Amino acid sequence: MRAGADHSPAVRMQAVFRGVGPGVAVSAEVLLYTPEQAAELLGVKPSWLRRKAAARAVPCTFVGKHLRFSRADLEAIVTAGEQTPRALRPRA
């Protein structure tokens, strides 16, 4: 690897897809996120996310032994955490 080169998942995927034949449309969008990437997007610690995934408390995907999160997994985690605002009771 060259010093200073960008080795993000999207860049790696683009490099893989360069070998695809002509006329084949392939998206370079990230399909799966590592726990660190997913935690950064969610604004939580990776250790929290790993613990929840190990307890099967949040949706996740295992590719072999590697823990990964899809965009749908992240959206489900956010949706599950949403809370409806409660009306404030007037003080007596």
Rank of each mutant, 00 (worst) to 15 (best):
A15V: 14
R91A: 12
A76K: 01
W48H: 11
V11G: 03
K45A: 11
F62C: 09
T34L: 04
V44L: 02
Y33S: 01
L31I: 13
V30Q: 02
R71T: 09
R91S: 11
R51I: 05
E82V: 13
Y33H: 02
S70I: 03
S47D: 08
R18E: 15
G4A: 05
P90V: 15
Q37K: 06
A3P: 07
E40I: 04
R50T: 05
F17C: 14
T34N: 03
A92D: 12
A39W: 00
Y33M: 04
V58G: 00
A28G: 09
V63E: 07
F17W: 12
V58C: 00
E82A: 12
V58H: 00
V63Y: 05
R86P: 03
R56Y: 07
K65M: 11
D6M: 06
A10D: 13
E29Y: 09
M1P: 06
P90C: 13
A72G: 10
A25T: 13
P22H: 12
G81W: 03
C60A: 08
L49K: 00
W48D: 11
P46W: 00
V16A: 15
A55H: 08
V58T: 00
R91G: 10
F62Y: 11
V30C: 03
R50L: 05
P9I: 04
M13K: 14
A3L: 14
D6V: 09
L74I: 09
E75G: 06
A25S: 12
T79M: 09
A3S: 14
A10S: 15
V30G: 01
A57S: 10
V63S: 08
F17Q: 13
V20K: 10
V78C: 08
Q14Y: 13
G23M: 04
P35W: 01
F62H: 11
L67H: 01
A10E: 15
E75S: 08
P35D: 04
Q14L: 13
F69Y: 02
V30D: 01
G43V: 04
A57G: 10
F69H: 00
A15F: 15
P35V: 02
A39H: 02
G21A: 12
V11C: 05
A5Q: 15
I77F: 00
L41W: 03
A55R: 11
R56L: 06
A53W: 01
A5R: 13
Q14A: 15
G81K: 03
P85W: 10
P90G: 13
V63W: 05
V44K: 00
R86I: 12
P85G: 09
G23K: 04
R91P: 06
G19I: 09
V44T: 04
E75P: 04
E75T: 09
A5F: 14
A54N: 10
P35H: 03
R51F: 05
G81V: 06
R18M: 15
R2Y: 12
R91W: 10
A87G: 12
W48Y: 12
A55E: 10
R71V: 09
T61K: 05
L41D: 02
L31A: 15
T84I: 10
R2V: 12
A72F: 09
T84C: 07
K52M: 09
L88V: 14
P22W: 07
A76T: 06
A10M: 13
L32F: 07
K52T: 07
A80F: 06
